[in-house]
């Protein structure tokens, strides 16, 4: 592996964002972020992204919607990005609903750092 893999974190809370960023940066990942659903697609289209950590409850456009948009993207490199939902699951989505939207895997909140690293590694390497 020559270049660092890039992870997009879609998260409106800067606390969680900074924390997640730190954890993943320690694992030598490159991190880009989106503060709301509107920025997600922009980020994904403007650079190669290896994985998206998607908070479901984000403003403008929620994580489920963003996930659907990415999956429906005409560029195959974009539509195939692994998407890991991060959620306190306030909306009680079932795993089927996540799958239907195109979520690859999900991590519950509060975030378990080890689980975070493990899951990201599983999909990104």
């Amino acid at each position: 592996m020559s270049d660092a893999k890039t992870i997009l974190i879609a998260e409106d809370s800067s606390v969680i964002l900074n924390l997640t960023k730190k954890i993943l940066e320690l694992q030598k990942y490159r991190i880009v972020s989106a503060k709301n659903g509107g920025e997600v697609l922009k980020q994904v289209e403007s650079q190669p992204i290896d994985c998206v950590l998607m908070d479901i409850n984000i403003p403008v456009k929620d994580g489920m919607e963003c996930t659907r948009e990415i999956r429906a993207h005409q560029d195959e490199r974009i539509s195939k990005i692994p998407i890991i939902a991060i959620t306190g699951n306030a909306n009680n989505y079932s795993m089927e609903q996540f799958r239907e939207a195109g979520v690859t895997d999900y991590l519950p909140k509060p975030l378990d750092f080890d689980a975070l690293v493990r899951v990201v590694k599983q999909y990104v390497g």
Binding site: S13, I16, G88, P110
Partner: peptide, 9 residues
């Protein structure tokens, strides 16, 4: 929801 998640974290 956000308070809960961040708080626990």
């Amino acid at each position: 929801h956000q308070l809960k998640g961040t708080g626990f974290t």
